[in-house]
Design a protein around this nucleic acid. Sequence first.
RNA 1: GCCGGAGUGGUGGAAUUGGUAGACACGUGCGACUCAAAAUCGCAUGUCUUCGGACGUGAGGGUUCAAGUCCCUCCUCCGGCACCA
Length: 1010
Amino acid sequence: MNHSEYNPSDIEKKWQQYWQDNNTYQVENNVEGKENFYALSEFAYPSGNLHVGHWYAFAVPDIYARYKRMSGYNVLYPMGFDSFGLPAENAAIKRGLDPRKWTYENMDYMRNQLRSMGASFDWNRSFATSDPEYYKWTQWMFTQFYANDLIMRSLTKTNWCESCKTVLANEQVVNGQCERCGNDVIQKDMAQWMLKITEFADELHDDLETLDWDHSIKAAQREWIGRKEGSLIPFTIQESEVYDVNTGPGDDAFRECEPIVDRDNVVVIIEHPENDEFLCAKWKQVDWQGFVTGGIEDGMTIEETALAEVREETGYQNVEIVKVHDQSSHGLFWHVVKQQNRRANYRIVHVKLTDLEQVERSEEEQSIADFLWIPRAEVNDFLKREDMKYPWRVVINELQTQDVKVFTTRVDTLFGATYVVLAPEHNMVQNLKSQITNWDEVENYLDEVSKKSDLDRQQSKEKTGVQLKGIEAINPATGKPVPVWVADYVLAHFGTGAVMAVPAHDERDAEFAIKYDLPFTFVVLPSAGEIGNSRPLITSGENAFILAAGTTEKKGSQEHINAEWNAMYDLLGTIEDGALPNGKRFCCTFEGKIINSAKEVNTKTSEETLSMITKMVGGEITKTYRLRDWGISRQRYWGTPIPIVYDPEGNPHIVPDEHLPWILPDDVDFTPDGTAPLARSEEFRKRTEDIFGPGWTPEVDTMDTFVDSSWYFYRYLDNKNNNEFASTDSMKSWMPVDMYFGGAEHTTMHLLYSRFWVKALHKLGLVPANEPYKGRLNRGLILGPNGAKMSKSKGNVIDPDEVVSHVGADTVRMYLAFIGPFNEPGNYPWDPNGVVGIKRFLERVWRLQNKITESTDESLISDLHQTIKKVGEDIDRLKLNTAISSMMSFMNKAEKSDGVSQSDYNLLIQILAPFAPHMCEELWMQNNSESIHMTKFPKYDESKISSGMKALPIQINGKVRAQVIVGEGESNDDLQKRILEMSEVQKWTDGKQVKKFIHVPGKIINLVIV
RNA sequence: GCCGGAGUGGUGGAAUUGGUAGACACGUGCGACUCAAAAUCGCAUGUCUUCGGACGUGAGGGUUCAAGUCCCUCCUCCGGCACCA
């Protein structure tokens, strides 16, 4: 029998038409006796033309879908269009066309192109996200989220692309540039509709475990969510400068700096008899003067001195000692002393007045005690005055304090926190404006920072900052005041936007502290075992270095590293409180044993103290996330209108269900100018007033297209449903998607958004499953023949339509499956000769018809069944390249054989059918009436695969030297004897002793000789 | 820096639990057919070789009868995150 030539252009059109006319690929939601399988490829942007990437995205997964269908599953493999959005709109603007017309024409054109792939899409289930019937449900879901507090409107810093004239989500900003056009993204304050994706951060993170995805995709999502566990620690911020001064009889020690240094001074805190407040902090609320200081009289104890001072000073005689503090741990008080001299040697005696009876005082004394208010700016000068008639003392005014919370993963270092840093955008900075004495300087710095783009800020690692003078923070662990700085190395959107800085144990803080000469306090002693894994890093001309944990990079010799460690230990032995002297500063980021901290935690390990210290200072253990809420407002025309209207007072209200779909208006000049085009629609404005009343206005932003694509996989299940987005039954039948094919670029965008969306719907009880995709496969990239990414400018673009016209769709599909392992998302260059190789293979399969005989050549039978087995297994694990190569191997043998029977030839074209659906249909239909694609994938016959005899390689000392045919029944001894008698073996064993005989049945024989 | 992944002929890539490294395809060479070319078919194709064999999966060690595969040290490339507290 002689058959015609294989001519794909004839047969492909024919069978595409046949499949369409016969609804071959129409899928029911439930089929008796069949399990459902939902195979999904990310749907297409109707940009106008199909490129090779589309073929790779749709035609190759179609092989898998067809195989699953032939394997007995009821397979849904749908296709639709993600038809709203910037690319379509930009293209429309460029050509001066209406984006709607342009988009819908493209979709018509592309539907035909998609048909030419021979993919088994069920077109009856198709839709486009710009169809009002579709976006009605997008809007409805928005209103559901709104009603359930999953969406909010807030004024936030947004990523603005000046070229696209719209806001972008964080996920759409790549290296500080617009993901679409590459322009630099700037920060802009705008009111945005925000979806509370962060509320689902834990679920999105934890549920990854339940998904059967490649772990690299899961890892990328986890990184994006960026969950960190740590503690929130409250720091009290207060004014640091003394600014009220009064005169009065008191201790002149406060006037002069020198004496206080050498004297053992007493600071007395008087407690109000009727409440627990310290009077020094509430000075102005009482009618007597509050604290007294003085040197200890000879022969008197501290307590006696204190009591005498109080009696004399206040006139109250009934005073009792409450507590003597051996060192100031009372932050409020400490300033006063500090202001005079930091290293004052003093005691605090805490006393209580037991009644309010007062001895008579002269009028002069009374008047002396009057307050003298002076301006803050003059305080310092005042303190230096020598012409005071009376002794005076400084009094802290009532302090205005507020808490700032810092986030840290290293609470164990809290005792070493020597300053606090706020992000430039931190609210507290503006809140403290009136108390900050160097506001001009601070404001300048904030200006400078705001001019930097995110990119600049990331690139320049040189640390800058400004101290907030006039305020300070109290380290809640030590009670000591520490300076507060603002610096842009602290990011507003991570943690709380404020950090406690521990220069002795954090690399960044160390750099900053060395630059600005801030103190280092060493509180965690690393365990010795960690030394080897360290890196010294000289950060300045000083003898300062960093011993960083968690790095394998060694900069400098091991001796150098050891020297640094030894220097550190030596120094630690000579200091008492952990304060590192100037010029001998170092930073060590290892965890270890706590030192120089509170008694309760000293000598414990970092890990043990995490919750202890947190509790001790009233903090809380929390998690923080890198993930931020999803801003979905876009100032563009071609998108789903946000179903919100504003009343005359400007309050937002949802558009009620009966007005959905809230139609996108037509009468709009959509040229982007930074304001929302919908604001220019007269019809939109009028419609809103007609329905809601005069003065009501519509929301004029549209939604990010990632909203449209966050739920589209539900619509395929029930796309004609006018009452629900999809029936619960249909969702139960199909969801979650069994295998989702898509691009790696969506790992932290669409894939994360849609997971969130489904979880939100699930929380509201609107969908049964709480994850959209059980399986996920990121496909690779097809490069141009020169190995570079295809682009018009590089002239390496392959036009699939043209290739198809030469070699046919089957060849193109199959070549793409052969180009590399589909289950590994690598980059595969398109090789025009490779395409020819596939075409040759199909031609040879076609010509094999000429070798059809009565019965199949015996020598082929085992190969055929092995091939059937391998092809099935390989498609299942999406190693389509090896599935194809095994069919090629079989063909090589078949061509040299005496021929195959018609029924065995049929088996061959059945296993080939998923790859080359048109050609196999043609070959099949010559003898059959039902489509090959509705037949069952052949079952291999195990008994025909394993023949009794097998050729095994014989190794001698691990090197292959001979072969032997081994039957099933042969004993090991017989086999050994037979092998040792073989001349090829004796050649090697002659005169040597066989030490060991290893026989791995079915695999190998190895003789060890000496 | 941290987290993933990968390094195999001239090229894309095979090698399912450690068991004949380089399947399959491209390219190249030679041959057949042809006046010739294309197409097609056949043979060869890791490197070196004294034709016995030796060496070979990024580098260097190790475990094993046996290592592309397992372990250790290191190098390079790709992807994600990154002044992330």
